[in-house]
């Protein structure tokens, strides 16, 4: 069994051969906000989730117009093949991939470098501290795609529905409610610990090989999700704390396993755990 869309993954060797390919833009997106500055794949641009992709005031992403402006500044056109990579098993790379899809970049031109930054480094490939600049482009984004993003009302409507499955991809202790983020940090914290009733706990990193950060084989991934009854005909909503880890699971289900109806609930626990009068389940059971 192979991946449903094997073309969305490129290997480090492929990237090494396309460093100077003008039709390819390599994009580093990290959880560690200062990693790119310590050295990156030569020619790669940085896309910073915190300063470039978030709306400056409300809790949302940049607007379509701001996304177009950002693409122009990064030298990305609608025809550019964009290859994402990053730290921590491509966690934020998948998040950025998801947002590019959200704004309608042709997904035949979106790729993730399998193994991410770790594999590139482990193979002794070169890094550069030089920040490249590219000629500005004209970029036309599409309206945001509601088919890949879930909001809270939809999540609420999914409770107790057998045709919809919720996946909580956080760590087991966050799922059970043993850990919540500390109250000193209200911008990322939650008032309550636990999980959305009915959600299965499948931590996102179970989809990768920890030694080299590459994705696990398709058969293994399918076994993992099917063991929870998560099958392609169902509507699936993945969530975590703020929607970044769950975009990794969204990527795995959508592109590696070919599940057609998968959404990322980016409001995630920092929204649900703060909502008034919504049900919350504590403990290890869904």
């Amino acid at each position: 069994m192979s991946y449903a869309r094997p073309d969305v993954l490129v290997e480090t060797s492929w990237v090494a051969e396309h460093l100077n390919d003008p039709s390819v833009r390599i994009v580093e997106s990290d959880e560690d906000v200062l990693l790119y500055e310590q050295g990156h794949i030569p020619g790669a641009v940085k896309i910073d989730w915190f300063t470039e992709l978030q709306h400056p005031s409300k809790r949302d992403f940049v607007t379509k117009e701001e996304f177009e402006r950002l693409m122009s500044e990064k030298g990305i056109s609608n025809d550019t093949v964009v290859v994402f990579y990053g730290d921590k098993h491509n966690w934020y790379a998948a998040y950025t991939f998801w947002l590019f899809r959200y704004f309608g970049h042709d997904d035949k031109k979106l790729k993730i470098m399998n193994g991410g930054r770790k594999k590139w480094l482990d193979e002794g490939r070169p890094l550069s501290k030089e920040v490249p600049s590219f000629p500005k482009t004209v970029y036309h984004a599409k309206d945001p795609d509601p088919a890949i993003r879930a909001f809270r009302d939809e999540v609420f409507a999914s409770l107790n529905r057998s045709d919809r499955v919720l996946i909580d991809v956080r760590s087991p202790k966050e799922y059970t409610g043993e850990l919540i983020h500390m109250p000193e940090y209200p911008q990322e914290g939650a008032q309550r610990g636990g999980h959305i009733p009915g959600a299965f706990n499948i931590p996102w990193a179970q989809a990768v090989n920890p030694d080299d950060s590459t994705f696990k084989p398709a058969e293994e991934l399918r076994r993992l999700y099917e063991s929870y009854g998560i099958t392609p005909e169902k509507e699936i909503i993945a969530y975590c704390r703020i929607g970044e880890r769950s975009s990794h699971t969204w990527f795995v289900l959508t592109y590696l396993l070919g599940y057609p109806k998968v959404k990322n609930y980016d409001g995630s626990w920092t929204e649900w755990g703060n909502l008034v009068n919504v049900p919350i389940k504590k403990g290890p059971e869904p």
Binding site: F50, T51, E184, Y185
Partner: peptide, 16 residues
Amino acid sequence: REITFSRPRCALLALD
């Protein structure tokens, strides 16, 4: 300020 704002939990871990 900008770094703390973008990664508050990381920036404040030592203080915490």
